[in-house]
Write a protein that binds this DNA or RNA. Sequence first.
DNA 1: CCGGGATGTTACAGTTTCACGACAATCGTC
DNA 2: GACGATTGTCGTGAAACTGTAACATCCCGG
Lengths: 229, 229
Amino acid sequence: MSAAKLLLVEDDPSLSELLEFRFKNEGYDVRATSDGDEALMLAAEDVPDLIILDWMIEGTSGIEVCRQLRRAKDTAHVPIIMLTAREAEDDRIRGLDTGADDYLTKPFSPRELLARVSAVMRRVRPALAGETIELGDIKLDPVAHRVERRGRTLQLGPTEYRLLKFFMESPGRVFSRGQLLDGVWGTESDIELRTVDVHIRRLRKAITVDDAKDPIRTVRSAGYSIEST
Amino acid sequence: MSAAKLLLVEDDPSLSELLEFRFKNEGYDVRATSDGDEALMLAAEDVPDLIILDWMIEGTSGIEVCRQLRRAKDTAHVPIIMLTAREAEDDRIRGLDTGADDYLTKPFSPRELLARVSAVMRRVRPALAGETIELGDIKLDPVAHRVERRGRTLQLGPTEYRLLKFFMESPGRVFSRGQLLDGVWGTESDIELRTVDVHIRRLRKAITVDDAKDPIRTVRSAGYSIEST
DNA sequence: CCGGGATGTTACAGTTTCACGACAATCGTC
DNA sequence: GACGATTGTCGTGAAACTGTAACATCCCGG
């Protein structure tokens, strides 16, 4: 099992402790800090899957943390849930403008926050519930970073792994080369569309076992997908 | 590529970027700009399926953009969702008067906007919302880019697929050859009218299964349609 | 029954798209 | 710094797809 990594940035010790306990109880891998600068460091050194960010914190302010997270390449697309003081209408506006994914107004019930977190996790990374994805005879364990097919461990390069995982997170769905570049390489990559073909080919080669049928479907003039069955 | 095309007009870079990312993540084909005049150009050159328009933008004002979009023939009935500052009751009224389809008051959660967009898309073109269209014994899944008939997967070429999808989005409606060229090939294609016949022929051949009856109806001296039953 | 316009069908040449192999640049590790 | 693994690009050839013309057939009003 393996858990989705949360970064909790909250400077009220009692609230922070409570939430940390609750989340760990739910099986999340939680790191907590009360300081904005430390939060940025932690996020940079081990990119979390979701960040819960209090508006009023020590060190760099919440909004500034948010902005810097968005600016850094690694964390640009990590979902952020902001915690704001109630009635602080302006904060909500600025928070969302700054790139937060969602916000919660204090006081809130921990259960509500848990629900939001779980909703975000489901949306962003269906696979990242920490469970291995299984598709036909292929098993992908995102935690161990390992892929098996018919009991045999496949030898995948980094890009091939990310590409396969991306496909397996949305079985059956057809992605254009552009979408694949965005999703697997990152939005700001500047790569030839045709290069995707080459990696598809490498992935196909790498997941070939015995006489098993190629699960990757080419959709002419549209893109690629992985067979959902 | 058959994703729904969104045009995002928003001049706050961070909000724009966030929304663009979220929408692309949902499979939409997004173009974004912060400038009103540029928005009009983009809309004219490749008509989007939905426009998200901030009230307060550079260049031509939001309301003016809205008006001009409505005035132009191509974009006259493209749905528009307006983003307005909070509490600006007057703006909301004027916005709707001007032809906006829906509006959202800042601050809003990105999730809320996604829900609205998806609702509008479902209403306008179900296939573009990612829903499968079913017509008689034919099932078309736009996400998987796959068409089935009586459980069998049909083998369609790119043009045949687009043609069939176009028909299935408006069951029963008769399209002239010119309308088909515009809708399936694009407005700037310069193709013989009679070429449509050939593709109709190819489509008919491709969707033939067993003794199933041909759902494509020829309307003499008018065009073609797909049987709504 | 006939004529003429409209549609169906076929063949084909030109174009587009994709799989594959090769190669140089880069990265990471020892 | 050296070595192997990984990565992005390009060229080639095969296969799929496309638009057009030519001919066959159908439909409808006289």
